[in-house]
Simulated scan of single mutants.
Amino acid sequence: MSILTGVIFLLVAKANIAFAQCAMCRATVENNVSSGETSVGAGLNYGIMYLFAAPYILAMVIGYFWYKNSKKRKLQTSKF
Rank of each mutant, 00 (worst) to 15 (best):
I3P: 11
K71P: 00
M60A: 07
A27Y: 02
N69I: 03
S70H: 13
L58D: 08
L10V: 10
Y46G: 05
K79A: 00
A20F: 08
N31Y: 14
I3L: 15
L10R: 12
F52S: 11
V61E: 12
S78Y: 06
I48W: 13
M24N: 10
S35N: 02
L58N: 04
G41F: 03
E30H: 11
A42Y: 03
S39P: 06
F65G: 02
F80V: 01
S39R: 11
M24Y: 06
M60D: 00
K68L: 09
G6I: 04
G43L: 06
V33E: 04
T38N: 11
L11D: 03
V12Q: 09
T28L: 08
Q76I: 13
V7N: 08
V61A: 14
E37H: 01
M24R: 13
A18D: 05
C22A: 15
A23F: 05
A54R: 12
V29I: 14
W66T: 08
N45V: 12
G47K: 00
L44A: 02
L58K: 13
I17C: 00
Q76F: 14
K14P: 00
C22Q: 15
N16M: 11
A42G: 06
A15S: 11
S35I: 01
L10G: 06
Y56G: 10
K72G: 07
G6H: 04
Y67S: 10
E37S: 05
I48Y: 14
Q21K: 13
L51W: 09
G36I: 02
L58S: 09
I3H: 15
S70D: 12
M60K: 01
F19D: 10
K74C: 07
A53P: 00
F9R: 14
M49V: 13
E30L: 12
A27R: 00
V33R: 07
A54F: 10
S34Q: 02
Y56H: 10
Q21S: 13
S34T: 04
G43E: 04
F9D: 10
A42H: 00
V40S: 02
M24S: 12
T28A: 05
Y56A: 10
F19N: 12
A15T: 07
S39D: 07
L51E: 03
K68T: 05
N31A: 14
S34A: 02
A54T: 05
I8E: 00
M60I: 05
V33D: 06
N69Q: 09
G63I: 03
C22N: 15
M1C: 13
A54I: 10
K79C: 01
N31P: 00
N32F: 10
V12A: 11
M1F: 14
L44F: 08
